[in-house]
């Protein structure tokens, strides 16, 4: 065993290996959306008392999302005549890029991070809201009333939820005394699995993050039964798949990973005895997957709220709560607990 460890250490000292690791984090992102998409199909099916895809690929329909992707690629690319072509076409890049950029600062292990920025959390929250500009652009460029209503809902939702999201993250930054993601994880070392002083922040963050990635019960901007996928009504084929599906899943994974890092101790193992360097990415993946699973469970259980109810909830409940939480964490900071 010591030999293996030594080998690993020498390997990690090599800059090319580090670069390879960094690239791999980025490269597994797109396949990851396919995997998460497939898991969601299966989780949904089992919650709904059915089997879900069973045929593509042979074993339990594992290739379903892959086949879906190929199908989307083959579809006709339609741009409405009245649409603003440039803006319309730019949208999928923007919505996907915003979410994907957040992965730059997410530590899968202390070394497994693309760039440990000093303003890591600030950066992650900032880039993850770029996608909304894409949605607004889509709503305006489509020249469709449903899209416009959807885009405006999205804008309203973003403004309402960005605040509690940032305030919840601010409480964590106060605890860690740093905005670097690795520092934040390391500051949770005394708590290991669950950073309990941040319990309330965690709940607020998860609610706000669900609204941010527009998943039920906060999916009013795309509500199919009301405004027919909102800003993306006019999108089809590849643009639809990337602009809506891929972007949603990347943002979904990004925010789950962010929550893992901020509140569940990131790559730290559940008990100190298991703290072994090569296993760290595994802990990170396990924790992120659990959050993903819980969010899927919520999605397939609840109906959706109404836009004004969401606004009321955000401004009258979440914002005051997160302010109180900051006060609470500040008070804890005076004690030896954190």
């Amino acid at each position: 065993m010591p030999d293996l460890l030594q080998l690993l250490e020498t390997l990690l000292a090599n800059p090319w290996v580090i670069l390879g690791i960094k690239l791999s984090v980025l490269l597994i992102l797109l396949p990851a959306t396919l995997v998460v998409g497939y898991v969601e199909l299966k989780v949904m099916a089992h919650i709904q008392h059915r089997l879900g895809p069973m045929y593509p690929g042979g074993f339990h329909g594992w290739a379903q999302t892959l086949a879906d992707g190929i199908k989307f690629i083959q579809k006709e690319d339609i741009i409405p005549r009245a649409a603003d072509r440039m803006v319309f076409a730019a949208v999928p890049f923007l919505t996907m890029m915003g979410a994907a950029l957040a992965f730059v600062v997410i530590p899968v292990g202390p070394q497994w991070i693309i760039e440990d920025l000093e303003v890591g959390i600030f950066y992650a929250l900032a880039v993850s809201s770029i996608g909304v500009i894409g949605v607004l652009m889509a709503g305006w460029a489509s020249a469709n009333k449903y899209s416009l209503v959807g885009a405006l809902r999205m804008a309203g939702q973003l403004i309402a939820y960005e605040l509690p999201l940032v305030l919840a993250a601010a409480a964590v930054v106060m605890q860690a005394g740093s905005m670097s993601m690795v520092d934040i994880v390391e500051s949770q070392r005394p708590f290991w699995l669950f950073n309990w002083p941040q319990g309330l922040s965690f709940v607020i963050f998860m609610v706000a993050a669900t609204a941010e990635v527009v998943r039920p019960p906060f999916d009013m901007p795309i509500a199919e039964a009301e405004i027919i996928t909102g800003a993306f009504t006019e999108y089809s084929g590849m643009r639809f798949a990337f602009g809506l599906f891929a972007a949603e899943y990347i943002a979904f994974i990004a925010l789950s990973a962010l929550a893992t890092t901020l509140f569940l101790g990131g790559y730290l193992p559940p008990i100190p005895a298991l703290d072994w360097e090569p296993l760290r990415p595994l802990w990170f993946l396990l924790k992120t997957s659990s959050i993903l699973f819980v969010l899927m469970w919520v999605r397939w259980t609840y109906p959706r709220l109404r836009e004004d109810q969401l606004q009321r909830f955000a401004w009258k409940v979440l914002v005051p709560l997160s302010l109180a939480n900051i006060f609470f964490v500040g008070a804890l900071k005076l004690t030896p607990i954190i």
Binding site: M44, I47, P216, A225, T301
Partner: peptide, 16 residues
């Protein structure tokens, strides 16, 4: 009705 309100699971239960 559940489906229209965004809850997609009840419809599957009802059809069972």
């Amino acid at each position: 009705f559940g489906l229209e309100l965004g809850a997609s699971t009840p419809v599957m239960y009802a059809f069972r």
